[in-house]
Lab assay of single mutants.
Amino acid sequence: PVYLSVKADNSMFIGNDPVTDETMITALNALTEGKKDTTIFFRADKTVDYETLMKVMDTLHQAGYLKIGLVG
């Protein structure tokens, strides 16, 4: 499974590897070998604001990742 996490300080990680807004999709493409039907499990600290969550989800959708599971 692929886990994308947003921490309380808005830092992002794919698994244990830090990513930025600019590198997130490139890292996901490498990890999933470009398979856009891969489910991305998205988790965020409860203090992360809604705007940040939606920005990340919008970026995922624009890149073609449509299977996003929200996890606690």
Rank of each mutant, 00 (worst) to 15 (best):
M12K: 04
V56R: 04
I68V: 13
K55F: 07
V56D: 00
A44E: 02
M57I: 14
F42E: 00
M54I: 12
T23F: 05
P18F: 09
K35E: 06
A30N: 11
F42M: 15
A8V: 06
N29T: 08
N10Y: 12
V2E: 01
M12A: 02
M12P: 01
K55S: 07
K46A: 13
T26P: 13
K7V: 06
V19E: 02
M12I: 14
T32G: 02
G15D: 08
I25Y: 02
N16L: 09
Y50H: 12
D45N: 05
L4E: 00
T52W: 14
T39V: 14
N16C: 15
T32N: 03
H61G: 07
D58Q: 13
V71R: 06
F42Y: 04
D49V: 09
D21S: 14
T20W: 03
T23C: 07
K7H: 14
Q62P: 00
F41V: 12
T23A: 05
T38Q: 09
K55Q: 07
H61A: 12
N29A: 07
D49P: 15
L53W: 07
T32V: 06
P1G: 09
L31R: 09
V71N: 07
S5M: 12
V6S: 01
F41M: 12
I40N: 00
L66R: 09
S5K: 07
A63P: 00
F13L: 07
A63I: 03
V2N: 01
D58L: 12
L60W: 01
M57F: 11
A27G: 04
D17G: 05
I25L: 10
G64H: 02
I14R: 00
T32M: 06
T23V: 04
V2R: 02
D21Q: 15
N29I: 10
F42H: 00
D9Q: 06
N16H: 12
A8L: 06
D37V: 04
G34N: 09
A44Q: 04
A30W: 06
G64K: 02
A8Y: 09
D9P: 10
M57H: 04
Q62T: 10
N10W: 05
A30E: 10
Y50R: 12
V2M: 04
S11A: 08
K35I: 07
T20Q: 04
K7S: 08
P1V: 12
T52D: 05
T59M: 15
A44D: 02
G69Y: 15
D17L: 14
T20C: 04
Y65C: 02
Y3M: 08
V56C: 04
I40T: 00
A44K: 04
T38N: 05
D58V: 11
D58N: 14
L4I: 15
S11P: 01
E33N: 14
T39H: 13
T38K: 06
E22S: 10
A30V: 10
V2T: 03
F41I: 14
A63L: 04
T26D: 14
M54P: 00
M12L: 11
Y3F: 11
R43K: 12
P1A: 10
T32C: 07
D9T: 06
Q62L: 12
T32E: 01
T20I: 04
N10S: 09
A30F: 09
A27Q: 11
N16M: 09
L60K: 00
V6P: 01
L28F: 02
D49H: 10
N29P: 01
A44N: 05
I40R: 00
V6I: 15
V71W: 07
V19Y: 04
T23K: 05
I40A: 00
D9A: 08
K55A: 08
M54Y: 08
V56K: 04
M12C: 04
P18I: 09
V56G: 01
T20V: 03
T47C: 14
P1H: 14
F42T: 03
A8T: 06
P1S: 09
V56H: 04
G15L: 04
L66V: 11
L53T: 05
N10H: 12
I25V: 10
V6Y: 07
V19F: 03
A27H: 14
M54H: 09
K67H: 12
V2P: 03
P1Y: 14
T52I: 14
L4C: 03
T38R: 08
D37L: 05
M12V: 09
I68R: 02
D49S: 15
V48L: 09
D37T: 07
Y3K: 03
V19D: 01
T52H: 11
K7M: 14
L66M: 13
T47I: 06
D49A: 14
V2D: 01
T23P: 01
A8N: 06
G15S: 04
L70Y: 11
V71K: 06
L60D: 00
E22H: 08
H61L: 12
K36D: 03
T59N: 11
G72V: 13
Y3V: 11
A8E: 08
E51D: 10
G72Q: 12
S11L: 10
T32S: 04
T59W: 09
L28D: 00
D21E: 14
T32L: 09
T39L: 14
L28V: 04
G15F: 07
A63D: 04
N29D: 14
I40E: 01
M24A: 02
M24T: 01
T23E: 09
I68P: 02
M54R: 14
G15Y: 04
M24K: 00
T52Y: 14
G34M: 05
G72I: 14
E33C: 11
Y50V: 12
F41P: 01
D21A: 15
K7D: 08
P18M: 11
I14N: 01
G15I: 03
D58R: 12
L66E: 09
E33K: 14
T23Y: 06
I25K: 02
G34F: 07
E51I: 11
G69H: 15
D49Q: 12
Q62W: 05
V19R: 00
I68E: 01
K35S: 08
K35R: 13
A30Y: 09
S11E: 08
E22N: 07
I68G: 03
T23Q: 08
E51G: 11
T20Y: 05
G69K: 15
E51C: 13
T26V: 12
Y50K: 13
K36Q: 06
L66C: 12
H61F: 12
K55G: 05
M12Q: 02
K67Y: 10
L66I: 10
I68F: 04
G64C: 04
V19Q: 03
N29V: 08
M57C: 08
T39C: 15
T38P: 03
G15C: 12
G34H: 07
V56Q: 02
F42S: 00
S11C: 11
L53I: 15
L60I: 06
D37C: 08
N29G: 05
R43S: 15
T26A: 13
F13E: 05
P1W: 10
Q62V: 07
E51N: 12
A30H: 10
G69L: 15
T20M: 03
V6R: 03
V6K: 02
L70W: 14
K46Q: 12
T38S: 06
A63E: 07
N16S: 11
N16Y: 08
L53Y: 07
L28P: 00
V56E: 00
K55N: 08
Y50P: 13
K35P: 02
L4D: 01
G34I: 03
T47V: 08
H61D: 03
L66P: 03
M12D: 00
S5W: 15
M54G: 06
Y3N: 04
K36P: 05
G72M: 13
L4S: 01
D17I: 14
N29L: 08
I25G: 02
I14T: 01
G69T: 15
V6W: 06
D37Q: 08
S11Y: 06
R43G: 06
T38D: 03
I14C: 03
Y65F: 09
G34W: 03
Y3E: 06
T59P: 01
